[in-house]
Amino acid sequence: MRFSPLRLIGVAATGALLATALVGVPASAADPAYKVMVFSKTAGFRHDSIAVGTQAIRDLGAANNFTVTATEDAATFTTANLAQFRAVVFLNTTGDVLNAAQQTAFESYINGGGGYVGVHAAADTEYDWPYYGTLVGAWFLSHPAIQQVTARVEDRTHPATSHLGTTWVRTDELYNYRTNPRANVRVLINLDESTYSGGTMGDHPIAWCHSQSSGRSFYTGLGHTQASYAEAAFRAHLLGGIRYAAGVATANCSPATGRPPVTVEGEAFTSTGGVQVANHAPASGGKTMGYIENNDWAGFSSISTVGRTGFSARISSAGAGGTIRIRSGSQTGTILGTVTVPNTGGWETFQTVTTTLTGTGTGPIFLTFTGGSGSLFDVDTFTITG
């Protein structure tokens, strides 16, 4: 038997000036000059990141050929005034911020080809205005404490995500929404709820885009913290959303058909019989689900098997190898699929094994493990599809 080493947790704190955060954000000098309005009126909770967020957008504009008018005056929402802007950013707005006439002017602006960018608490805005609910995509419901999360990038072709990898680890306040917008929008990023506490949606979109009449809408649920606006990756995300909404960058924002694959860290199990976390530098996140022996199992309460048809796992083994059984609902639940895991030649030598899922999944995924004696294999990540 291999024994679990102590887990070492390193915490690093860094600070950066906003001006230096432009490093890594690609300039879009080829874009025609245009104007963007940043609107940050609040009638509820007020985020202390509004000022740095506004300055970040000004900096992005200076580097990417657009000028910014920042305001909290709702009286600027007139047909004549809005016509000069290619996009309007609702930056952490809250509550009822526009009257009926101003709402009508904004509807006409969007329907006529204008662009909307909603940032974070833009989803905590105008609950009694159905048009806005469709525009933003989903309204805020709740949030847990600020914490680190692994976000999964579903669409890397959009200008707001093209700079990202398949996952994005960052710290923010993570909204749950009243409804899942997936059926009506193109989801760009979703949250892996197994990597943080307090997610309630299962399938959890956090950034998306869609067209509305002749206009364009982009929303990101990220951007609560002041630190967000000093992060080059987040600023590039925000810039891509602005460029799309302004119509100077194109993207497919039609709702995607089918469901996206879900990739899960093996060590993110929520219940277990025998397995432990193992440290391996080449693994995703530097850790695996390890110390797997015959008849061990692991459950993942937020990962549903309903409708899923495929399974793959990134595994390693210097032991006997063995078998993974994919079950629904519990460690003794219906077997949906089975895949053989070979000896890969080392605990840090990874390869992928794949199988088809059959039968009817009705609950969360459980993995059960069988094989010979001693440690069988490690699971770095697994992905379910369909």
Rank of each mutant, 00 (worst) to 15 (best):
T370E: 02
T14I: 07
G345P: 14
G359V: 06
G374T: 00
N190M: 10
A12K: 03
Y127Q: 09
F300K: 09
T362C: 02
G95I: 15
T104R: 07
E348M: 13
V119H: 00
E348P: 11
A27K: 10
Q351M: 10
T370G: 03
F66V: 02
Q351N: 12
Y131W: 10
R170L: 15
Y175I: 03
I206L: 05
D203E: 14
T354Q: 11
N81E: 14
S328L: 07
P205N: 14
D296C: 02
A233V: 01
G363N: 15
R327F: 05
G95L: 11
N190Q: 08
E154V: 14
L222P: 00
V153K: 09
H143P: 04
T352P: 00
S197D: 15
V379T: 03
L60Y: 01
S301V: 14
G44W: 08
T362N: 10
L188P: 02
I326H: 02
P26T: 02
A33L: 06
A183F: 09
Q276G: 07
G221A: 05
P342Q: 12
T104I: 03
V264I: 15
V306P: 04
V262I: 08
T20C: 12
I206D: 09
Q226L: 09
N176R: 04
P159H: 02
T78A: 11
L336K: 13
M289L: 14
F39V: 13
W208D: 08
A318V: 09
S271L: 03
G274E: 01
G285F: 12
